[in-house]
């Protein structure tokens, strides 16, 4: 039972990383990024390509891939997404949804739909004794790293000047501007950062999940439910809901396997009825 709960948290780590990226992007840009799953997939493919074509291993990929994807994200924001600011959010939906399909098809064209091979880093090949039970070392690493990343983002947003500016720009853009702060300067890096987080989740997934063009599309539906449960744009909410959904799915699989597919969405519907803005959402901006 404790083992299963822990297991749920590991699954939740992926949801949390992806939801966190979606939340900061939504908070800052007001854009729901439908291409997020595609960037998660590109993260995994990035790790695969680095190893397969350049012989660059997992540890370097953990840094290189998110940085590269972050830069791609920044370019995309500059070239495309920026042009839609101020328009109906529907345009943002269409643009990012279209991007997701294009990215997915480009990868499919190049690599086909069958999954690619990726070996686990040897250092993390064993099992760790966690006191009550043994657990695969790699999974412990995934959980620890995502907890550290989520914590660091939290500290960045609440304890630093940059974080303060970002939060202020999200909540009251006009007032922030009136104080002499250039809000638009921060939009591009925040978008890139959100994409980098998706890329990081993708690299982490490479050794333990099937690497194929469809992997992001399948996962992202659940991540959207996570973001909605946590409260759109709420950074804390998205992370908390990510881990919560991980737990709920693991326990759901354990006790009511037949329902596990719908459990997340039942929970989402219940949360929306009870608190339409999500568990941690407020009417305005980042928590």
């Amino acid at each position: 039972m404790i083992e299963q709960a822990f297991n749920g948290l590991v699954g939740g780590a992926f949801y949390a990383l992806l939801a966190l990226g979606l939340a900061v992007i939504f908070g800052m840009l007001g854009v729901v990024n439908f291409a997020h799953g595609a960037f998660y997939m590109l993260g995994a493919f990035g790790a695969f390509i680095l190893l397969d074509s350049f012989g660059i291993g997992f540890w370097a990929a953990l840094v290189i891939v998110p940085v590269l994807l972050g830069l791609v994200g920044m370019a995309l924001e500059r070239l495309l997404i920026r042009r839609l600011s101020g328009l109906d959010p529907l345009y943002g939906f269409l643009l990012t949804f279209g991007l997701a399909l294009i990215l997915q098809d480009l990868v499919r064209r190049q690599y086909g739909v069958q999954s690619q091979q990726y070996a686990r880093p040897e250092l993390l090949g064993g099992t760790l004794n966690l006191g009550l039970f043994d657990y695969p070392a790699y999974q412990v690493f995934v959980l620890a790293l995502s907890a550290v990343v989520c914590g660091a983002v939290w500290l960045l947003l609440t304890r630093t000047k940059i974080g303060m500016i970002v939060r202020a720009s999200t909540e009251k853009p006009e007032l922030t501007r009136a104080l002499g702060i250039d809000v638009s300067r921060w939009v591009t890096p925040v978008f890139g950062f959100g994409i980098a987080l998706a890329g990081l989740a993708g690299v982490l997934a490479a050794p333990m999940r099937a690497i194929n063009p469809l992997m992001g599309g399948d996962l992202i539906i659940v991540v959207f439910a996570v973001v909605v449960i946590g409260g759109l744009g709420s950074v804390f909410g998205s992370v908390a809901a990510g881990f919560l959904i991980g737990l709920v799915s693991a326990l759901g699989n354990l006790y009511v396997p037949a329902l596990s597919q719908t459990l997340v969405f039942i929970l989402m519907a219940a949360v929306l009825l009870w608190r339409p803005a999500g568990l941690f959402g407020r009417q305005e901006g980042l928590t």
């Binding site: 959010p89 744009g233 999500g278 959402g281």
Partner: peptide
């Protein structure tokens, strides 16, 4: 948040 939530899903 609310309207978007439903559209997103």
């Amino acid at each position: 948040a609310k309207g978007l939530s439903i559209a997103v899903v």
